[in-house]
Design a protein around this nucleic acid. Structure first.
Lengths: 167, 167
DNA sequence: AGCCGGCCTGACCTTAACGTGAACGTGAAC
DNA sequence: GTTCACGTTCACGTTAAGGTCAGGCCGGCT
């Protein structure tokens, strides 16, 4: 990649530091297979490929992978749902490019408005899930209260539930 | 609320009205196969079997099924995790029996204390999940804020994003 | 007694989400 | 230039969570 010293002219590059799949796996705690699988089902495309077709990931790919894992493990979404949440990878690629050479402000505005919509949808879905969870917690607490009520009732009529010990 | 078929003590039996699997399926919106599968993996045992080996479910079974579905669909737990949450079915059966002939108050107290512990564990797990979800929502809102910040920045330097129309 | 739909078990089929090689190319080191 | 760990694709295996018959009993009605 760099041995060909040419190109990437312009005012000094911030050295993107692309990672190969094994490093990504180490950093995210996922297996390489899993990362490739996510690509296979369209969840993320590596930022680039090396000369010899190695996958090369950048920081945004790492973030995306973490996000996918959170959505799966914490929020419990299926990969299909996650795919919908993240919208299609093609659009992301287009946007990535569009932003990179964000020639004018209008284009940037379009991209940002799009991103805003997506994030808003994500938040809505997450909040819906959180609401359902909250109501489950409410129910559980109601059950707990009833149980504790019964216990109190017992304690009132009985002297001791014989739990500590009586020599 | 689901595992205590208590009350109904003494005077006149309220005719338990047991349901066959198809009725349960209709009421819960699940398939019969699914209900049998949950039994197969130890999530719930029907309250009884008929003379000819038909599964017969009572109200507490219905509640438990609903609870299982909530845990799966809303909270996103796997059936294995749900199994752990609900503790083993054998214990439940023992408790059901223990309670039915709740001879003395001390026994009732033991049962209730056990139930209390279980519900407390359930609540803890649900709240942990809710917390993770909440932090994901926070992150998403942070992203949203950043995007909106960029948009505001654009609006400030640019006259119009050309969205309304200019004749 | 016969009917017929519901129920039973058992067996195989399916899909999602990976795991586990096989066979072969890469690339930085020695 | 050979080595050897790492990478690639392709293919088949596996587990969870059911779906879908098949063949054979119930059971309520006539």
């Amino acid at each position: 990649m760099w041995y060909d010293g040419r190109q990437m002219s312009l005012p000094e590059n911030p050295r993107p530091r692309l990672l190969r799949i094994n490093e990504v796996a180490a950093e995210t705690g996922m297996t390489t297979r899993r990362i490739r699988y996510y690509e296979e089902v369209g969840l993320l495309e590596p930022a680039a490929r090396s000369d010899g077709d190695y996958r090369l990931y950048d920081a945004s790919d790492l973030d995306r992978l973490q996000f996918i894992r959170d959505l799966r493990d914490d929020a419990g979404f299926s990969l299909a749902q996650i795919g919908q949440l993240l919208e299609d990878e093609a659009a992301r690629e287009r946007n990535r490019e569009r932003l990179r050479q964000a020639t004018n402000a209008a284009e940037r505005g379009l991209y940002l408005a799009d991103a805003q919509q997506r994030v808003e949808r994500q938040i809505a879905l997450l909040e819906a899930k959180a609401a359902r969870l909250a109501s489950m917690i409410d129910e559980a607490q109601a059950r707990l209260a009833r149980i504790q009520g019964h216990l109190a009732e017992l304690d009132a009529t009985e002297p001791m539930p014989a739990a500590v010990d009586t020599p």
